[in-house]
Amino acid sequence: MNIEKTRAVILTLLPYRETSSIVKLYSEKHGLIHGIAKGIRRNNKGAVPIERGHQIELVVYVKPNRDLHTLADIQIIDFYPSIRQNLQKSAIRDAAFELILRSVHQNEPHPEIFESLLLYQSALELPATKENTFSLLWKFHLGITDLLGFGIQYNTCVKCGRDILDSGGYLGIQQGGMFCKSCAATTGLNDTFLDKDTIRVLCDKEIFLNHIPYRELMRISRIITAYCRFHLDIKQDFKTMQFLAEMEQ
């Protein structure tokens, strides 16, 4: 058994028996970990009220060839109050968590993914319009997909090499790249168009989006989620996408 202290972000939290919880977290040193936090739900002064989304420091008792480890000495580093108080931000945070849970394996460390999670939550914590909150989700999804080996060149057409920053283009989900309007017409792409402002945001050429209808934000989110699902071999639909769609109604 290895005993290590590490930082982590809580992805899910489920009650277990009377006083404990089953926790799925993404840690700095071990990647995705499933563990049991014993006594964490006791109603006393010593209990730490942890929740999904908290950044914590803890001790992990890593048991070789086991899927469930023991978690202890949990201390909260940041609880991101702005995200907790905003339903839309919480849903967009959870969409990122769902991607992590469905795309990475347990006990495989990816420190760069952990840092991406911290940066993502810190950015979500800041005041922002709904447009720019959604753009954080798009960039996180595509950033994780890039880290796992399926990055996109956003500003040029993969077929003819034409620059599309000023005109927009179509995301070829199976082809793994962007297509200009002319090449998209010959490739059969017709419903994955990303306008120039969206592409500039994804390229970090532009910071802010404004006055975009919620339905369009969801359309772009579905396109990007479909790209991630295809290349990361995720079979099921994302539940968080359905929840975000219902918030429009």
Rank of each mutant, 00 (worst) to 15 (best):
D94I: 02
I10E: 12
F140V: 10
A91C: 09
S21A: 15
I3M: 14
G143D: 06
P127D: 04
F97R: 00
S135L: 08
I33H: 13
T133I: 13
V23N: 12
Y214L: 13
Y154P: 03
E98N: 03
C160W: 05
G161M: 04
I40F: 09
L126P: 00
Q175W: 01
I220H: 04
R66K: 15
L99W: 00
I144L: 15
L11D: 14
L126M: 11
E216G: 04
I92R: 03
M247L: 14
D237Y: 02
Y227Q: 01
Q75D: 09
K235E: 12
M1W: 12
K196N: 03
G53W: 09
T225W: 06
G39W: 09
L118E: 14
I144M: 12
L101M: 13
K5G: 13
N107R: 10
N190S: 14
I199A: 06
L14T: 14
L14N: 14
N65W: 03
E18C: 10
F134H: 13
T225Q: 01
I224E: 05
R41V: 03
T187S: 14
F114P: 09
R102L: 04
T6Y: 10
I234M: 07
Q121V: 03
R52V: 15
I22L: 15
C160D: 12
Q236F: 04
I164Q: 01
T156K: 14
C228R: 01
Q175G: 11
L142M: 10
R215W: 03
I223K: 02
S167F: 01
L189M: 07
R41E: 06
G151S: 13
E28K: 14
T129Y: 03
F238W: 05
G143Y: 07
I212T: 11
E246W: 02
L71M: 14
I77D: 11
I224W: 02
K5V: 13
G151W: 05
N155E: 14
A95Y: 05
I77F: 07
M247I: 09
A245H: 08
L124I: 08
I164F: 01
R222M: 04
D67H: 11
C183N: 05
L194R: 00
A95P: 02
A37E: 10
Q242R: 12
S135Q: 08
P64T: 08
E248Q: 08
F79Y: 15
T192G: 04
N65E: 12
K45W: 00
H54L: 01
E125F: 07
C180Q: 07
A72N: 14
T240H: 00
A184I: 03
A72F: 05
K89M: 07
I74K: 09
T198I: 09
P49H: 03
Q153S: 10
A47Q: 04
A185Y: 05
C228P: 00
D78V: 11
R66L: 13
